[in-house]
């Protein structure tokens, strides 16, 4: 296996779907604010994680546990419990962002393999060396703001593995430092594990179409038949300078399948598919498609086109290679 495929699982059934579809690794989180997909009804209880790890290992797959929100000052118990539960379950690694959580893991769970979450936004050799030297971090999940050329340069300057997002929701902001959701709702992926928490989201229909509201702010309005996106401020449509447009980012999904060979050549160890909040239908389809793409690259092909195969699953009906190809700069 030349490159590892890391796949999302929001529920035990999604974990099984991912493993059966060919995931080399599955990432998931506990049912609380310790992970960045803290949505109602989603995620794993400690017992479900034990069973999930057992299932994955029996099928030759690994389980990585995301504990990647930032702990509350003076109230770290949930994060400490998550680390202990991940170790008890036999997780192959934990994905962390917060310095205190990293320190606790390195000190009290020395056998846990540590990955640095994209939420830590480490994108320089100096920052990565700090995490590696201080806490023994073995892998960095890279922010989605780097080009392939920048990733190649970064990999040449560091001595830890790198993991790159290749498909799914595209966060256009510097992750871990975005306050847009907090501004509107008081909750954020960084601290409470939810961007645009669903209790603040409302869709209302009228003769002009559907309006998306976040905490009372109308952030988009789309007509009948017009493709929709997630209800996040970064993908909202606003009027500025007399023009209505998506000011920050269009509703669009990342698809870097055509860059798998280039990312492998740039030294990337693992490819990550976003979507723990998505259903097992999405998980199975995307994982199966990307596993075939990875195997095709392994077999010597230089480029694989999977955009058409997954077009029905993407946000806004559109796909982009994001910052990996920085034509927009």
């Amino acid at each position: 296996m030349s490159i590892e495929l890391v796949c999302p699982a929001g529920t035990p059934s999604a974990l099984r779907a991912a493993v059966e579809a060919g995931a080399h690794s599955v990432y998931c989180g506990f049912r609380d604010e310790t992970n960045a997909r803290n949505f109602p009804g989603l995620n794993f209880s400690p017992d479900e994680l034990v069973e999930g790890v057992r299932f994955a290992h029996a099928h030759g797959a690994k389980v990585l546990v995301a504990i990647n929100t930032f702990a509350k000052a003076g109230a770290m118990d949930a994060w400490k419990a998550a680390l202990a539960n991940a170790e008890t379950a036999g997780a192959d690694a934990v994905i962390l962002a917060d310095l205190a959580v990293l320190d606790h893991a390195a000190t009290h769970h020395p056998n846990l393999r540590l990955h640095l979450s994209v939420q830590a936004a480490a994108a320089t050799p100096e920052a990565i060396a700090f995490y590696a030297d201080t806490f023994g971090v073995k892998r960095i999940v890279m922010p989605r703001v780097l080009s392939v050329e920048e990733i190649a340069k970064l990999n040449a300057a560091i001595n830890v593995e790198t993991e790159a997002f290749v498909f799914g929701g595209l966060c256009p902001m510097t992750e871990g430092r975005c306050s847009l959701s907090s501004y509107a709702t008081g909750k954020s992926p960084n601290l409470t594990g939810v961007c645009s928490p669903p209790e603040h989201v409302a869709y209302t229909e009228d003769k002009d179409g559907t309006a998306t509201r976040l905490a009372g702010f109308t952030i988009d309005r789309f007509g009948a038949g017009e493709q929709a996106g997630y209800p996040t401020l970064c993908k909202g449509r606003f009027v500025a300078g007399g023009k209505t447009s998506y000011l920050f980012e269009d509703p669009v999904s990342l698809n870097a399948a055509s860059l798998i060979a280039a990312l492998a050549k740039a030294g990337v160890t693992a490819l990550k598919i976003e979507g723990r909040q998505r259903g097992k239908g999405y998980v199975a389809e995307v994982v199966r498609t990307f596993r075939a793409a990875v195997e095709a690259i392994d077999a010597g092909r230089t480029e694989v086109e999977v955009g058409r195969l997954l077009a029905g699953l993407v946000e806004g009906g559109r796909q982009t290679s994001g910052a990996y190809k920085k034509a927009w700069r």
Binding site: Q227, A228, G229, G281, G316
Partner: peptide
Amino acid sequence: GTFDGDALFFNR
């Protein structure tokens, strides 16, 4: 589980 809810919503 045949369909993904988000995808159905995106596609209206």
